[in-house]
Design a protein around this nucleic acid. Structure first.
Length: 423
RNA sequence: GGAGAGGUGACAGAGUGGUCGAAUGUGCGUGAUUGGAAAUCACGUGUAUCCGCAAGGGUACCGGGGGUUCGAAUCCCCCCCUCUCCGCCA
């Protein structure tokens, strides 16, 4: 959510932001609602003031005196009026709130112009994509793949997109998770093991609701949502809290399985490990002082990048253009790993600065030392990293001529041997 | 799941229809006292929102929502959470 004051004082800034993100939002409608909400609020407050003054006077009168009775009669009318106007105000306020939720976050000045994913800027490329085997094949075509990554039985037991990981497959997942968590820990992120179901208030605070309601799995009869990313429970950890300024920045990381319905995304790009309904991911999260958030974004991205570097995987960094930025983000980098068999880039991390956008919805603040007043923190998050696509790249890029897969040196202590075999 | 108790400011804890945004204590801040400290004393110490250039003023908030009433922290209804006991169980 945006600062309502910003909207009032500089509607043109918001208008420009909407244009840069290529969104279609009725800004004038929001402004009109804002004006009428404020007018109604003043009216109601004036009436309530009247009521309050009368109450104070009546408290001093002996009950049952003619004066008292007259006053009661008089205030009945005001009371009825308050009730009516209050009802209207509430209605307007709800409309206003809903309208405010349709306003996107402002993109940072450094975000490039552009509408489509093709216009994202290639910010950096690491590693040589030609150095990996030209004979590599898509991971699902590797002989024996389905023994370690059993989609068929997963589909039987649950549904499409819920594979079993078996033997060396399961072991490699565990090795990656533990490696990521250990590395993130060394980088200063405190490990958290959060709930994997959240309530509606949490999903709203991070922006999954109302926009992406159909993308989450819901439970019955308790209305919980299976987390689509650890970002949701993690960000909400400090919801409605005021932190000490000296506590900032806070770095946290968490592994959770992630659940996504991916409604409407069937078609290409969904083969093998590319897109699943349940997958494992380690998420990095930061709560920082507003003055440092862009510096922190760069550090966050580098933390995620270093994981790919240590695994020896070629990757590139994209700086997202305005049109591909996302509703809540002010600036975002995507990390894409090279998948030698599919000959394409796969997104494995998305590092974003939300500035105060999430913090305002979630009411996460800190007490500023100089003024003693609460201010909104800035929140950032990024994957560090999503497992299945890293796995896909590893299987494809490190495939040996004998059909085994060479395990990166950093993973050997976790995996226990140098090669993964499909036998 | 059943029975009971309870949710008040940073914390503890009063308050059972009106003068209560809320006693008191602790904590915290500023000052006095001291060579310095402790102790003591004085004053101050919530959040949000609206109006206003500002000074300042208004309104709301006692777990959440609804209701009764001229008036609700206080009464009624629903929900959430915590604690104790019982049951069940990894």
């Amino acid at each position: 959510m945006l600062d309502p004051k910003l909207l009032r004082d500089s509607p043109d800034l918001v208008r420009a932001a909407i244009a840069k993100k290529h969104l279609d939002v009725d800004l004038d409608g929001v402004l009109a609602l804002d004006a009428s909400w404020r007018a109604q609020l003043q009216e109601v407050e004036q009436l309530r003031g009247q009521q309050k003054a009368a109450n104070n006077a009546m408290a001093k009168l002996p009950k049952g005196t003619p004066e008292f009775v007259a006053k009661v009669q008089e205030m009945k009318a005001v009371s009825a009026q308050v009730k009516e106007r209050e009802g209207q105000l509430k209605e307007t306020e709800e409309k206003w709130r809903q309208a405010m939720l349709t306003l996107p976050n402002l993109p940072h000045a450094s975000v490039p112009e552009g509408k489509t994913p093709e216009e994202n800027q290639v910010y950096a490329t690491h590693g040589d994509i030609n150095a990996v085997s030209p004979d590599a094949k898509p991971h699902w075509e590797i002989p024996g793949f389905s023994r370690l990554f059993d989609f068929e039985r997963g589909a039987k037991v649950t549904g499409a997109g819920f594979p079993f990981y078996v033997g060396d497959g399961a072991k490699l997942v565990r090795a990656l998770l533990q490696f990521f968590l250990d590395e993130d820990g060394k980088a200063g992120y405190v490990e958290v093991n959060p709930p994997v179901f959240v309530n509606a208030a949490s999903a709203t605070a991070t922006g999954q609701l109302p926009d992406k309601e159909g993308q989450m799995y819901e439970t019955v009869p308790d209305k919980f949502y299976a987390v689509p990313t650890a970002e949701v429970p993690l960000t909400n950890f400090f919801r409605d809290e005021i932190l000490e300024e000296s506590a900032l920045p806070v770095y946290r990381c968490a592994y959770t399985p992630c659940f996504r319905r991916e409604a409407g995304s069937y078609g290409k790009d969904v083969r093998g490990l590319n897109r699943l309904h349940q997958f494992d991911k380690v998420e990095l999260l930061k709560w920082v002082h507003p003055s440092t958030s862009y510096e922190e974004l760069d550090k966050l991205r580098l933390d995620a990048e270093s994981l790919l570097q240590k695994l020896g995987l070629p990757y590139r960094v994209l700086l997202m253009c305005g049109g591909d930025l996302g509703f809540a983000q002010a600036k975002k980098y995507d990390l894409e790993v090279w998948s030698a068999g599919q000959k394409r880039w796969l997104e494995v991390s998305s590092c974003s600065n939300f500035e105060s956008f999430q913090a305002r919805r979630a009411q996460i603040r800190f007490r500023a030392k100089d003024t003693g007043k609460p201010e909104l923190v800035h929140t950032l998050n990024g994957s560090g990293l999503a497992i299945p696509r890293v796995l896909a790249a590893l299987l494809e890029n490190n495939l040996q001529s004998d059909g085994s897969v060479k395990v990166p040196a950093v993973l050997v202590p976790y995996f226990g041997k140098d090669y993964l075999t499909f036998a």
